[in-house]
């Protein structure tokens, strides 16, 4: 799976970091960094949770993952 973030929509609410801290990190500059753009399948549930909880719907999982 591939993570795509719409950085125009992202408001750095850091809910993705709660759900999948090894993939998403909001740093002290206030910006979101993607730590793994293509995380392993073992992280799918966590990444889907991150996408689901994002308050600005900024996270998309490509390649057949849940939208």
């Amino acid at each position: 799976m591939k993570i795509v973030v719409d950085f125009d929509a992202c408001m750095s609410n850091a809910q993705c970091m709660r759900a999948a801290p090894s993939v998403f990190e909001v740093r002290d500059d206030g910006f979101l960094y993607i730590l793994q753009e293509e995380p392993p399948e073992s992280l799918r549930a966590a990444v889907e949770e991150a996408a689901r909880l994002c308050p600005t719907q900024a996270i998309t999982i490509e390649d057949g993952g849940a939208k």
Partner: peptide, 11 residues
């Protein structure tokens, strides 16, 4: 307050 990077830890 302007501390988004600390949300996960305090949650």
């Amino acid at each position: 307050f302007n501390s988004m990077h600390r949300v996960a830890a305090y949650t």
